[in-house]
Amino acid sequence: MAEIELRGIGKSWGSFVGVKDVNLTIADEELIVLLGPSGCGKTTTMRMIAGLEEPTGGEILIGGESVTDVDARDRDVAMVFQSYALYPNMTIYENIRFPLRMRGVPKEEQSTLVQRAADMVELGDFLHRKPGALSGGQRQRAALARAVVREPQAFLMDEPLSNLDAKLRAAMRVHIKHLQRQLKITTVYVTHDQIEAMTLADRIVIMQGGEIQQIGAPDQIYSDPANTFVAGFIGSPPMNLITGRVADGAFGAPGVEIPDVPVDDGRAVTLGVRPEDCKVATEGAHLNASVYGVEPTGDVTILTLKTDTDTIEVKADRDFRAELGSPCKITFDTDRLYYFDADAGQRIRTT
Rank of each mutant, 00 (worst) to 15 (best):
I258V: 08
V263T: 03
R245V: 14
R267I: 15
E257C: 09
I242R: 08
N240R: 08
G249W: 04
D260G: 05
P259H: 06
P259D: 02
M239K: 06
D265P: 13
M239Y: 09
G244W: 06
P262H: 11
P254R: 05
F251R: 05
V256A: 10
D248G: 05
N240T: 04
V263R: 10
E257M: 14
I242C: 06
I242Q: 03
G266P: 15
N240W: 11
V256Q: 06
G266L: 10
P238R: 01
R267V: 11
V263L: 08
G235N: 01
V261L: 09
P254L: 01
N240L: 00
D260I: 07
F251L: 02
R245P: 03
G235A: 03
R245S: 08
V263H: 10
G244D: 12
P254S: 02
G255A: 05
I242E: 10
T243D: 01
R267T: 14
R267S: 12
P259M: 07
E257K: 04
L241H: 04
G244M: 14
G255S: 06
E257S: 12
A250K: 03
E257F: 05
G255M: 12
P238N: 01
P238W: 01
P238V: 02
A250M: 14
A247R: 03
L241D: 05
A247N: 13
P262L: 15
I242Y: 08
G252H: 07
D260F: 14
D260V: 09
R267K: 13
